[in-house]
Design a protein around this nucleic acid. Structure first.
Length: 726
DNA sequence: AAATCAACGCTTTTT
DNA sequence: GCGTTGATTT
């Protein structure tokens, strides 16, 4: 080691890192691909690389672009950078793909072909809009599913394709979908709205079609850092590649084994393509895991080894083997939940924190049984997912008023609030407006203005006039106010508050509270986080923020509570104690993914992600019988359990041997009805304390009656009793 | 205009 | 089985 290298190794940037991390962080200025296994310090490497570039390579913070997928990741990165570099991180562009692309569109709205006050539709808005559009086009009778049309449109946008790029292949269905896409585009442009996929595609096309602008950003952002690279979809990948050009220096971090978003356009292949597109890419593998015990890692490694065409990585740890992975099979989902709650109670009794515990499941519907048990036992918990703040109906109503104030031609917002609270503008009147708007190719706002003087009944015209006046007055009254005062004024003047106050139920009160909270959100909002360019009014910025960052779900009502979430939303998190529930074939892997190899491999990666969330202790549970959508179904333990090395597992109950044949061989269904957990009536069993006996009956839950030769009949709980089959 | 009823669908989710 | 949604009732 030379003196020079030694001084590098001692620097605060490199000192806390292991060899591989150090190699990545201090790599020469060339394209770098970091293959970072779960828990190997991926984010840390990204942060330290930025610090390295700024402090060692003397790169200006202004020439750095750091991209993440979620706002959470972006916020975290920003925070860690500020702490590490003790600088104002505003100099850096750190954000999500959508956030950064949006920022570009705000700056270059004209070149992007947008109006200055363009606003963003979330998936829900988009669905409504498409539904409305289908009706207008005379296809509103249910032959077309708005979700399907949306899927078609977004899928193509994610691949960078416009209607003109699509051929109908002489398929009438496809031809129709392309036509809908075309109409949808026109409609969006008319009302000044963009959907999420459009943000990315527009930003891409902005660069593609404007060489001067592209040249400017290429010159500015030579260093492009991307987190979770395996999750990039085609347009995101192309956006990065376009920006990097020939001289850019992308530094991307990802893990092909944790790619779980293929179904929403992510392409795992981008990891390989990166190496082809950027000649001389330095590939660094981070394989030392700092999170999990040896047993957990060994099981996860063995599982993921069943996938083909991996980039190759084997996690290892310095840590002890720790506990084996415990596998439990319940009679049904309530039995399963009872078992899980029992273990949690133990954990808490022994001084463990509730917030260190995560219950993971494949689909949201599975949370209910756990929630019921948790409530019953008085254990605080938090469920991830569900409606977020800015997605709530009453909040969207309020935002619709604000949007209309900002852009009168926003038809979806117009329709949303024109009669909310009710002001005598019925469906009939709105129908007339729509007709006029379509015939004259104008917005509903313009149609309303025109029809007030002629074409409507006196009553309808009056009511409509009142609404138009209201919006105009609100917009005028609010002009010189601070943002939060604007919001406050609009929820009052629109009568939304009064409307919900009339509802004296808990729901109504919650809505009023949420509306008040919206004012607080506006008060705390810093427009500079959206863009620091001149000429964007705070309201427009706030509305964009509301769409781009839907906010938290329930907030943190409880500090120390058990965490419930899907396997997908667990990605990136870690917990000392993890339960993977519903480990049954058909549920996980999900039956809709089982058929094709790609689908099954993605499920396996999901299982890998789940298992590697666990730091100390991991349980995998399943139910023999499960009520799904109201019907009882019988299942087999997940094939994924069978893919893990038996010596790393421990079956909680004695009756199922953890061996490949048992997990792989499907047993007949009729047999399952007479037996439970491999035990059958009349079966001779051995108990450590009570000696030999014979099974008399199966009780509810995991209870079983055994007539012991020496001590008589006992009822045992199979969760605790270790019965050995004889 | 609110209340009630029938129909629907149901993997995963961020932006 | 349950929650949402759209249509129909009162």
């Amino acid at each position: 080691m030379t003196d020079h290298e030694r001084s590098d190794a001692d620097s605060p940037i490199l000192a806390p890192l292991n060899d591989a991390q150090r190699e990545a962080v201090s790599a020469p200025l060339k394209p770098v691909l970091v293959l970072a296994g779960a828990g190997s310090g991926k984010t840390r490497v990204l942060i330290h690389r930025i610090a390295w570039l700024i402090e060692r390579e003397r790169v200006s913070p202004h020439s750095l672009l750091a991209v993440t997928f979620t706002n959470k990741a972006a916020t975290e990165m920003r925070g860690r950078l500020e702490r590490m570099l003790s600088m104002d991180s505003r100099a850096l562009w750190v954000g999500t793909f959508h956030g950064l692309a949006h920022r570009l569109l705000r700056i270059h709205w004209r070149e992007a072909g947008l109006i200055q006050t363009f606003q963003i539709m979330d998936g829900e808005d988009q669905k409504r809009f498409i539904k409305r559009l289908l009706k207008t086009l005379g296809h509103g009778d249910g032959e077309w599913d708005p979700k399907e049309v949306r899927g078609f449109i977004n899928g193509n946008k994610n691949e960078g394709r416009r209607p003109d790029d699509l051929a109908d292949d002489h398929d009438p269905t496809r031809r129709q979908l392309i036509q809908f896409y075309r109409e949808y585009e026109t409609a969006c442009n008319r009302v000044g709205l963009v959907d999420f996929a459009e943000i990315l595609l527009r930003a891409y096309e902005l660069w593609k079609n404007n060489p001067t602008i592209l040249a400017h950003y290429r010159q500015r952002f030579r260093h492009i850092l991307v987190d979770e690279f395996q999750d990039t979809n085609t347009i995101q990948y192309n956006w990065i590649r376009l920006l990097a050009g020939r001289d850019g220096l992308p530094f991307v971090v990802g893990d092909d084994d944790q790619s779980i978003y293929r179904w929403r356009g992510a392409r795992i292949e981008h990891l390989r393509q990166f190496q082809r597109d950027f000649a001389g890419t330095r590939v660094v593998r981070l394989e030392q895991n700092y999170r999990s015990t040896g047993n957990i890692l060994a099981a996860a490694n063995a599982l993921i080894a069943n996938n083909t065409s991996r980039m190759g990585k084997n996690l290892w740890t310095d840590d002890r083997d720790g506990d084996p992975i415990r596998v439990f099979g319940g009679f049904n989902e309530r039995d399963e939940a009872q078992f899980v709650l029992g273990r949690i109670a133990e954990w808490v009794d022994q001084g463990g924190a509730r917030s260190d515990v995560a219950i993971l499941y494949r689909s949201n519907a599975q949370s209910r049984v756990f929630e019921e048990r948790l409530i019953g036992m008085g254990i605080p918990y938090r469920v991830y997912g569900g409606l977020r703040f800015f997605e709530r109906a009453e909040i969207k109503d309020a935002l619709a008023y604000l949007r209309l104030m900002s852009n009168r031609h926003d038809d979806p917002s117009f329709e949303r609030v024109v009669n909310l609270p009710t002001r005598g503008i019925g469906a009939r009147t709105v129908e007339v407006l729509r007709h006029y708007a379509r015939d004259n190719d104008t917005s509903l706002w313009v149609a309303a203005g025109a029809l007030i003087s002629d074409g409507l009944s006196k009553r309808a015209a009056n009511a409509l006039h009142g609404f138009l006046q209201l919006i105009e007055t609100m917009a005028r009254d609010v002009r010189d106010l601070d943002l939060h005062e604007q919001v406050d004024h609009s929820i009052e003047a629109s009568q939304l508050i009064r409307h919900h106050e009339k509802d004296r139920t808990e729901k109504g009160e919650a809505r009023v509270e949420n509306l008040r909270e919206l004012v607080s959100a506006a008060r705390g909002f810093d427009p500079d986080t959206v863009t620091d360019e001149e000429g964007i009014d705070p309201l427009t910025a706030f509305l964009a923020h509301a769409s781009l960052e839907a906010g938290e779900g329930q907030g943190d009502a409880w500090d120390d509570c058990v965490q419930l979430m899907t396997l997908h939303s667990a990605k990136g998190l870690e917990f000392p104690l993890v339960f993977m529930s519903g480990m049954e074939d058909g549920l996980f892997p999900h039956r809709r993914s089982i058929a094709d190899v790609d689908g099954l491999e993605e499920e396996r990666r999901l299982c890998y992600v789940g298992a590697t969330r666990a730091m100390e202790r991991l349980y995998m549970t399943y139910a023999e019988q499960r009520r799904l959508h109201g019907v009882d179904t019988f299942g087999q333990p997940s094939r994924f359990i069978g893919e893990m090395p038996p010596e790393r597992l421990e079956e909680i109950r004695p009756h199922i041997k953890v061996s490949r044949p048992v997990f792989r061989a499907p047993s007949s269904r009729s047999k399952l009805e007479e037996t439970s957990h491999g035990l059958r009536l009349g079966q001779r069993v051995m108990h450590a304390k009570f000696g030999e006996g014979v099974i008399l009956d199966f009780g509810g839950r995991s209870r079983v009656q055994v007539n012991f030769d020496n001590v008589g009949t006992k009822e045992l709980d199979l969760t605790y009793a270790r019965l050995e089959m004889l």
